[in-house]
Simulated scan of single mutants.
Amino acid sequence: MKVELESIGTIHTQFKKIEGMPIQPTGAKGIKGTIEIKDKYVDGLKDLGDFSHIHLIYLLHK
């Protein structure tokens, strides 16, 4: 079976190197980040305001 992924955006954080980067959510308390969604996917996310939570599935590539 072949699985292909297409990125819909990029997560930006203060971390630029693996050293010092938390590997568990409890180690990242208070850390802020942003998610930049590619323009062609923005309309598909327009109703997220109606939800209390979303699940973000990501692939670490560096």
Rank of each mutant, 00 (worst) to 15 (best):
Y41A: 06
F51A: 07
P25S: 15
T34E: 14
Y41E: 08
G44E: 01
I23D: 11
G27C: 00
D47M: 01
K16P: 02
I35R: 06
T34Q: 04
K32D: 12
G9Q: 04
V42D: 05
I23E: 09
S7T: 04
L60G: 15
D50I: 03
G44M: 05
K29N: 05
G33T: 02
G9W: 01
D39V: 01
T34A: 15
E19A: 11
L45V: 00
I35K: 09
G30H: 03
M1V: 14
K40Q: 15
E4R: 06
G27Y: 01
F15P: 00
E4P: 06
T10M: 14
I11P: 04
L59M: 12
M21F: 01
E36M: 09
V3W: 12
S52F: 01
E19C: 11
A28K: 03
H53P: 06
Y58E: 06
T13P: 06
G33W: 09
H55A: 15
G44P: 00
L56W: 01
K16C: 11
K17H: 15
I8L: 13
Y58S: 07
F15E: 07
A28P: 00
K62P: 09
I18K: 13
S7I: 08
M1C: 08
P22W: 03
F51G: 02
F51D: 04
K2L: 08
G49D: 09
E19F: 11
L5W: 13
K2N: 08
G20K: 00
P22G: 04
T26K: 15
G33Y: 04
I8E: 05
